[in-house]
Structures are given as structure tokens and as C-alpha cells.
């Protein structure tokens, strides 16, 4: 599968608008995967209909004590880099949400008194709507480990979803979850808006994507046709602008209702078509 990450430096620039509309548009003619990896706050499902196909619980491995082997030496607490283990006297306490599943405690316990057991991390939900397969990865509230959930989501996609093109709605920001998502994709669309905030955040996103050595192109959202610092930046840095979605209250209103926008707004449709033709040319190049 050829996977395209839709990402942005900050939230609220229109990542979800682009990924949901683009994937539905492309799905008119071919099998498409839309995956929502914004695991803390997955919102794409609001724009998807269709049949619930399957749900899968996602687990991570956390340590548990084999009581009759533990002598309370405290080595496990000492080696845990994530403060996920505490000793009260000779009693060992594990904090599973803090655990990174590195296995250091298990490997280094002098008495082989630790084994791993699965703990629930979140859930994957697959919904099928004709050509469109939608996958949502959702982290349970209170869980902090987005990265293993994202990793396992990509494994699930590999094993279960035959579509040739995947549109991946990424988490916002530039920290580990974004890195994990973009690392697993072949190309990146960066969505931004023409304001100093948008530009500042776009620069951070560009740095992140370059660090991961991925090819990318820019999509401007809420474009008001006025002087545009994003265009200046892109021409100076020689970055490709794929499309510019106009700033219109009617578009914002359609989004607020959870509707697909390209079906009702012809300007928006034009921009989605530009993005879709880029996707198709990337696919041709790949074949």
C-alpha cells in the first residue's frame, strides 16, 4: 500500500477535513484506506458512514511478578528508566501506564521473578463503506503510550487491508506520535493556514518531515486570496503547493455538521481534485 500522511504542525488547520474529503473522493473510483491515527482525539469517524467490519483490542506487554521467586532486591526499580516500578519496603508495585514495554526489568531481574502479561492500550475499529475502508485507532483515556498503538495499527493495516492507497490522518504537533506515523508513510501532505501562527507551525512540521527524509507537499487551508506569507515561504524554500482551499463560512459550516464538503461546494471540489490528481500521479510513479 502507498501511504500518504496528512499532517500539520498545530491542530485545527484542517487535517481531518482534507483526509476525510480526499479519501471519500478517491473512493468513488478505487479502493481506499482512511486511517485516523490521531489516537488521543480521533475525530474522523464523524465523517464516515458504513458497516462496522471488525474491532480489535490493542495490548501492550507489562511486567507482573512471580511472587514466590521475588526476593525484594529492588533491581527492577533501579533499572526502570520510566519510573514505572516502586518498592514499598520489599513490596514491588508496577505502574502500567508508565511502562514502555522495554523488558529491562524482566531481562535484568537476578531471580527471573518477572514475566510479561498483556494490558489493554486501546482499540482499533474498522468500518467498511463500499470502496472506502476506515480504520480508527483510539487510545484508552489515561493511557499515555501512543507510539505502540500507532505501530500496531500499521501492522494491522498491512495484514488486513488490501487497498492500494492509504490516507493517514496524523496526530498534530511534532513529537513522537507524529514521528511514528510519518515514518510508516511514503509521502506527506502538510496542511497549513495563511497566518503567522500557521507559518510558524508549518516550519516546525517541515523540519520534522525533512528529518525523517520524506517527500512532501503543502496544502493551504482557509486561503483568503490576500497577501499570503505561506506562498512567500514556499516559493523561497522551493516547496510545492498542491492546493489552496478557500476561506468560506459555508465550508466551515458544512464541516461543523460533519458533512462531506466537496459534494456541496464547487470551489472545494476543485481543490480536492487537484490533490487527488497528485495522489494518482504518485501512484503511477510508484507502479
Amino acid at each position: 500500500m502507498y501511504k500518504i500522511a496528512v499532517a500539520s504542525g498545530k491542530g485545527g488547520t484542517g487535517k481531518t477535513t482534507v483526509s476525510t474529503n480526499l479519501s471519500h473522493y478517491l473512493a468513488q473510483e478505487q479502493a481506499i484506506l482512511l486511517a485516523d491515527m490521531d489516537v488521543e482525539e480521533p475525530d474522523s469517524h464523524i465523517f464516515v458512514q458504513g458497516q462496522l467490519w471488525q474491532e480489535k483490542k490493542v495490548y501492550k506487554e507489562v511486567p507482573t511478578l512471580i511472587k514466590d521467586k521475588c526476593v525484594g532486591c529492588g533491581r527492577c526499580k533501579e533499572v526502570c528508566a520510566f519510573n514505572a516500578i516502586t518498592m514499598l519496603g520489599k513490596r514491588v508495585l508496577f505502574f502500567n501506564e508508565l511502562c514502555h514495554s522495554c523488558y529491562a526489568c524482566l531481562e535484568l531481574c537476578p531471580h527471573q521473578a518477572i514475566e510479561m502479561k498483556p494490558q489493554m492500550l486501546g482499540q482499533l475499529t474498522q468500518i467498511n463503506d463500499k470502496n472506502l475502508t476506515f480504520l480508527e485507532a483510539r487510545l484508552d483515556i489515561g493511557q499515555e503510550q501512543a507510539v505502540p498503538l500507532i505501530k500496531q495499527s500499521f501492522d494491522f493495516i498491512k495484514e488486513n487491508i488490501p487497498a492500494e492507497i492509504g490516507i493517514i490522518d496524523s496526530p498534530p504537533g511534532s513529537s513522537c506520535p507524529v514521528v511514528e506515523t510519518v515514518k510508516n508513510c511514503d509521502f506527506v501532505f502538510l496542511v497549513t493556514e495563511p497566518s503567522p501562527f500557521g507559518l510558524n507551525d508549518l516550519k516546525i512540521a517541515v523540519d520534522t518531515v525533512k528529518l525523517l527524509k520524506k517527500d512532501f507537499a503543502i496544502i493551504i487551508n482557509k486561503d483568503d486570496g490576500e497577501e499570503n506569507i505561506i506562498r512567500d515561504y514556499c516559493s523561497k524554500e522551493d516547496l510545492e503547493i498542491l492546493a489552496a482551499i478557500p476561506e468560506k463560512q459555508s465550508i466551515a459550516e458544512l464541516y461543523s455538521r460533519g458533512s462531506l464538503i466537496y459534494e456541496e461546494d464547487v470551489d472545494f471540489l476543485g481543490e480536492i481534485q487537484k490533490i487527488a490528481s497528485k495522489v494518482n500521479s504518485l501512484m503511477r510513479r510508484k507502479r
Binding site: 520510566f82 519510573n83 514505572a84 516502586t86 518498592m87 514499598l88 508495585l93 505502574f95 508508565l98 499515555e144
Partner: peptide, 15 residues
């Protein structure tokens, strides 16, 4: 200096 897990660390100290 602790990034994660400040609560349990402090609790242990108190204990």
C-alpha cells in the same frame, strides 16, 4: 528532573 511518574516517586519518598 523526572519526566514521568513523579507521583509514585514522591509517594515512595514519603513512605
Amino acid at each position: 528532573e523526572t519526566a514521568h511518574g513523579a507521583g509514585p516517586q514522591t509517594s515512595q519518598k514519603i513512605f
